[in-house]
Computed example of a mutant assay.
Amino acid sequence: MIFPQVDAFRGGENLIRVVGHRGARGVLPENSLIGFDFSLSIGVPLLEFDVVLTADDVPVITHNHRLHAPSFRDAEGLFLTGEEPKVSSLTFEQIQEFDIGRLDGHSAYGRRFPDQAQMDGVRVPRLMDLLNLISDPKNGDACLMLELKSDPDLAHDTRYREKLVGRVLQEVRARDLSSRAVLHSFDWNLLEACQRQAPDMPSSYLTQLPENADDVGEDSSKAVCPDFRGRRDDIPHLVKQAGGSLWCPYYADVTAKNVELAKDLGLCVAVWTVNEPEDIAKMIALRVDAIVSDYPGRVQRHLSDLGMVW
């Protein structure tokens, strides 16, 4: 099947796409409407973000399965301490009591993003809030790389997977945006459920080799991602066999060989998460299709300096 939204992420001879990771996490609060709107406003209409279900089955946009202490503040304006409550244990109304507009600069996570603006009154958005934003005619070229977050505690629960996929699809279809969304996950079993429930939508397969360290302060993908140890250059074949349209590998895992193989198989290659100038340059040299970045402006600058477009 040909999926028009895949072409939105596909590069060309003088073209590499730029994808705003969690909006533009390097400069604005991550997975926030203001971050998404900023990315759209600078000519980066491709958005990558994370979806988790609340206790009342509302799809919300946040990365971790627990409220992230370095970026969640309570009603008194204090960053969370102690055990982080699970998103799935709270209703959407309860989650709205927390502010995500600042980062705790004393935390290891906060020190990773020293340039992120500090704001007040920023709340966790619903998936529907973002869908409403891109439904605005001025954002008609926006496409979504929608990551369904698989809870490791429920990774083998078929009913949970089907419910998560079903609720996400219900909202995407309610706004008639199926043709502008890609379903994206590290959990290949979850992507099977996506293909069953939404054969009209493409699947994007996230991968990370186990030898690479996890990012500080973030849920690890390794609990749900297949173990590709010793199979680096065979991953594109596995993605294609699984029914994938996009391969989204960790940038340190790509080589000239596996990028070429993936393209020969017809896969679109979108690498994550590429922030440092030297790494951006390497990915451009490899001619990946798309670069997912917390700093979309940095990628734009590199491409512009080379006379390339995005």
Rank of each mutant, 00 (worst) to 15 (best):
G217K: 05
H68I: 01
V44W: 03
L80E: 11
S88M: 08
L53M: 10
L169H: 03
R196L: 15
L191I: 03
M128W: 13
S150G: 10
I100R: 06
R232I: 06
V224T: 06
L206Q: 00
C143H: 13
A193L: 09
D56A: 06
A262D: 00
T81L: 09
D57C: 12
V292Q: 13
R123K: 11
V44H: 04
D74C: 01
P29E: 01
L183K: 07
V87K: 00
L78Q: 12
L15I: 14
D57N: 14
G166I: 01
V271H: 10
D74Y: 06
F186N: 04
D279V: 05
V271W: 06
Q241G: 10
C194Y: 07
S293L: 09
A181D: 04
N14W: 06
K282M: 13
L133T: 09
Q118A: 09
S32K: 03
L90Y: 06
D56K: 04
A8R: 06
D234N: 13
V122G: 04
S204T: 00
A117M: 12
D219A: 08
A117R: 15
Q96P: 04
L80S: 04
R111W: 09
V269Q: 01
D215C: 07
D141E: 15
C143E: 14
P4F: 02
L190T: 05
M308N: 15
H21R: 09
G23N: 01
D57H: 15
G110P: 05
G230K: 00
Y250F: 12
L144E: 02
R301V: 11
Q300T: 07
R232Q: 09
A117T: 13
D153W: 13
W188V: 01
Q197F: 07
K149S: 06
R159I: 13
G217L: 08
L103K: 02
R66S: 11
F92N: 10
I61D: 00
N212E: 12
D176P: 09
V216C: 02
D99M: 12
F72P: 05
F72R: 08
A281F: 06
I134K: 01
G266Q: 07
G101R: 03
L267N: 04
S39C: 11
